[in-house]
């Protein structure tokens, strides 16, 4: 524990800016993953334990495409598209078979895929840590705000994730697809009685969620070391985020993600060995005060 360092940081503008930025990066990337998880749960009432593996897959796809084409833009695009396609297959041919079963069967199918994907990644890309490297466009001197150092890539990440978040919000609230999705979350049998193919809606939600996770993985690839276990740690963080924000609530996921991002970034200064513990502590406190999460509905 190093409270002196934390107080020093909180009282210095430069440190405040740097840490807030890195907290926002962690938070916004986490949000992309958690938003898909919470969306899938909200509509299908299924917990996609493989969601972290989607993120991992996105990062590795980006690594390969970046290596082949040298274009970070194409790499991120491929990550999103590739994981979306994978999510489609996963939902149609595996997950949809156990919608009617109990939660244990769904858990088992996800568990199987986590094992398979982790091993597949080790076989295809090797067991050692990989790093993708920064695209040359971002290799520029960092920006200084109030003495705080912000790499250009960080600024780019924040802007892109914000754009994606707004786009997601528009899709959910302003499009016909979004309306159907929201209706299916509340009353799937009524949606189906109105002549809408709910199976297709479920598939669409899974693909959208998978695409977000793939995007997050692709975007994060330059600033993360890639390893076969990386999916599970972000899965746990996404769980914490959705529980804090309220399962099924996308706004809650945003709030939770930013909170967790800030806890991680400032916590690493004050309690370097207990950062994970801080997140769980935050979750436990919120659950005791409000079991349905900050923005979740009761029941």
């Amino acid at each position: 524990m190093n409270l002196a360092a934390l107080t020093d940081c909180l009282t210095s503008a430069s440190c405040l800016v740097t840490q807030t930025t890195s907290g926002l990066i962690i938070g916004m990337l986490l949000f992309l993953v958690a938003a898909g998880l919470t969306l899938i749960f909200g509509v299908l009432k299924v917990v996609n334990f493989t969601h972290g593996s989607f993120y991992m897959l996105g990062a590795y796809l980006a690594l390969t495409v970046n290596g082949l084409t040298g274009s970070y833009f194409l790499a991120v695009l491929a990550a999103a598209a590739g994981v979306a396609a994978f999510a489609f297959v996963f939902e149609r041919f595996f997950m949809s078979k156990v919608y009617g079963s109990n939660v244990l069967m769904q858990l088992l199918v996800c568990y199987a895929f986590i094992l398979i994907l982790d091993d597949a990644v080790k076989i295809i890309w090797g067991p050692e840590f990989k790093s993708m490297g920064m695209a040359s466009a971002f290799q520029q001197p960092p920006i200084f705000i109030a003495g705080g150092i912000i790499p250009v890539f960080y600024l780019f990440l924040i802007i892109v994730t914000l754009i994606i978040s707004v786009a997601l919000w528009l899709i959910i609230t302003r499009t016909r697809f979004g309306t159907v999705v929201r209706a299916a979350a509340v009353n799937p049998s009524m949606v189906s009685a109105l002549g809408i193919n709910t199976g297709l809606v479920y598939s669409g939600v899974f693909v959208l969620g998978g695409m977000l996770a793939g995007l997050a993985g692709g975007l994060a690839a330059p600033v993360r070391s890639l390893t076969a276990g990386m999916g599970f740690s972000i899965l746990i963080e996404s769980f914490i985020v959705t529980v804090i924000g309220g399962m099924g609530s996308i706004a809650g996921a945003l709030l939770g993600s930013v909170l967790i991002g800030l806890v991680r970034s400032f916590g690493s200064i004050g309690f370097p060995l207990f950062v994970e513990g801080l997140m769980f502590l935050l979750m436990a406190v919120i659950l005791i005060l409000k079991p349905s999460g900050l923005l979740g509905k009761e029941g």
């Binding site: 199918v109 568990y111 199987a112 895929f113 094992l115 076989i123």
Partner: peptide, 10 residues
Amino acid sequence: HGLVLGAVIL
């Protein structure tokens, strides 16, 4: 191990 066990679980 993971690949085979995963397939068995599926």
